Lab assay of single mutants.
Amino acid sequence: MIVFVRFNSSHGFPVEVDSDTSIFQLKEVVAKRQGVPADQLRVIFAGKELRNDWTVQNCDLDQQSIVHIVQRPWRKGQEMNATGGDDPRNAAGGCEREPQSLTRVDLSSSVLPGDSVGLAVILHTDSRKDSPPAGSPAGRSIYNSFYVYCKGPCQRVQPGKLRVQCSTCRQATLTLTQGPSCWDDVLIPNRMSGECQSPHCPGTSAEFFFKCGAHPTSDKETSVALHLIATNSRNITCITCTDVRSPVLVFQCNSRHVICLDCFHLYCVTRLNDRQFVHDPQLGYSLPCVAGCPNSLIKELHHFRILGEEQYNRYQQYGAEECVLQMGGVLCPRPGCGAGLLPEPDQRKVTCEGGNGLGCGFAFCRECKEAYHEGECSAVFEASGTTTQAYRVDERAAEQARWEAASKETIKKTTKPCPRCHVPVEKNGGCMHMKCPQPQCRLEWCWNCGCEWNRVCMGDHWFDV
């Protein structure tokens, strides 16, 4: 396979590697080409510095992935760790964990309700045991953590790749202090920090972006993250068709209702045909949960890209028209025109101005929308079919299609509260000796007794199943 190397943020060049090629071997190839010592090179990928003893497969490097290699003399205490030698983080029983690669970060837990604080980093599902597709590297999971809308060759929703760059020099040479644990960490600028490894760059702020994971991409090709779309790892039924499908869209209502993408497309087109989208002054033209839940309008309007190009163009047109109407304007009634106009409040005669090729020149009556006339309008008909009709959803289907309910059931079956801080902690095999993952707590306690870890627990039921 081919990976592209950008040395000291210059133009990239291809390097041929195998899945079992080590990072140090990659350094040696680059060092020979650039005429520099291999031990002064640092390989940066997806916000993480890659260790010498890791392989291309370990690092989730795919065909035509772009890695950054910078030349920086080692500072005291760094060289041993980078070589894969006596790194205290690798000691058996050590409590410190390697910062998780962005290629394996899962933010789907952050669609849980606000009262489930902490689960994004504490609760991990076991539903990723799908067998890898044919042709994928051994052991590589097909679980997708992110979804994007690819405006490039795909023109559809695709699995996405999370990447990070330095907000100062805009190069992907920043190593994160810690990985993101929720969508806010990724979507809110300057929320996460790190250290830029580019020479002479003092940058410390992280800037995240997404790429389409279905095809090789260049540095400049980015895609918009659709953070309401998630892999259906909890096997929730769709609120409309009641099938279990994946991926799904999880509405931001209190129940976190789930809808499959085909039904979401149908829901949007139906509402669009009836012009029953909601115009929100802050958000724009949007839709609420299909069950009509309060405070559930979709905030990231790129989710409506699921409509496809033709329907999305209609959505944008109707949204612009609705904006004009909300501002007190009118639409030209001549067939084939429909231009938005903003006449004076007491102006009865409205002319669709033909300047700049935008208007048709038609003069019409503001009251009856017919060709302009003197005197009273002959008839004014009330528009028919403008009443909002509820999208029919079966109550039982709505009850079963809740992301929140599956989460709470998982928590109930696989977790116990920490005796000190009461945060839910998952036990997935292993011994009875637990350690609270909350940095402010870190209590060592017994899963069996529910009390602080002691010699009695150690001698009596340390390794009970």
Rank of each mutant, 00 (worst) to 15 (best):
C182P: 00
V350K: 03
T173P: 11
E195D: 08
S22C: 09
Q100L: 11
E49V: 03
G152E: 13
S205A: 11
Q158H: 05
W447R: 07
T177E: 14
M434T: 15
G361E: 05
T410H: 10
T387E: 12
P247L: 05
A291K: 11
V67F: 07
C238I: 01
Y267R: 01
R366M: 07
D87R: 09
K220H: 12
P294M: 07
N454R: 13
A363G: 08
P281R: 07
T242Q: 15
L301S: 08
M80S: 11
W403C: 03
L26C: 01
S10T: 08
T125I: 05
S19Y: 07
A405K: 14
F304G: 02
N58T: 10
L331M: 05
H124W: 04
T173M: 06
L226A: 02
C418D: 01
Y267D: 00
H11Q: 05
V29M: 15
T177V: 10
F264R: 00
L102V: 11
D130W: 08
D18R: 07
N52C: 03
S286D: 00
P189F: 04
V248Y: 00
S101M: 10
H433T: 05
Q63H: 15
L187V: 07
V3Y: 03
W183K: 01
C457F: 01
F209T: 14
S19L: 08
I298T: 01
Q347M: 12
R275A: 00
P137G: 13
V5E: 03
S246K: 04
A82N: 09
P189A: 09
G430D: 12
A390C: 12
E221H: 10
K427L: 07
W453K: 01
K27R: 04
E300Y: 06
R163A: 15
N190F: 08
P37E: 13
A406S: 14
L107G: 14
G84Y: 12
A138T: 13
N313D: 07
D126Q: 09
H433Y: 05
T21E: 04
S145E: 03
P180T: 00
R314V: 03
E16F: 06
C150W: 01
G429F: 15
E382P: 09
S233V: 11
C253E: 01
S167L: 06
F209V: 15
S246T: 09
L228C: 08
L443A: 09
D86S: 11
H11V: 06
F45P: 00
N8I: 01
L301H: 08
E300K: 05
Q171K: 15
L443I: 07
N232S: 01
S378R: 10
K413N: 13
I306T: 05
V70I: 12
F146V: 04
G94T: 13
E370P: 02
A214R: 07
R191C: 06
E28P: 00
Q389I: 14
H257G: 00
F45R: 06
E98F: 09
V290I: 10
C150D: 00
E309G: 09
L249G: 01
C196L: 00
I66W: 06
R128K: 14
N8E: 05
E426S: 09
P153Q: 10
R51Y: 08
K408N: 12
S286K: 00
A401L: 02
D20T: 09
R170F: 06
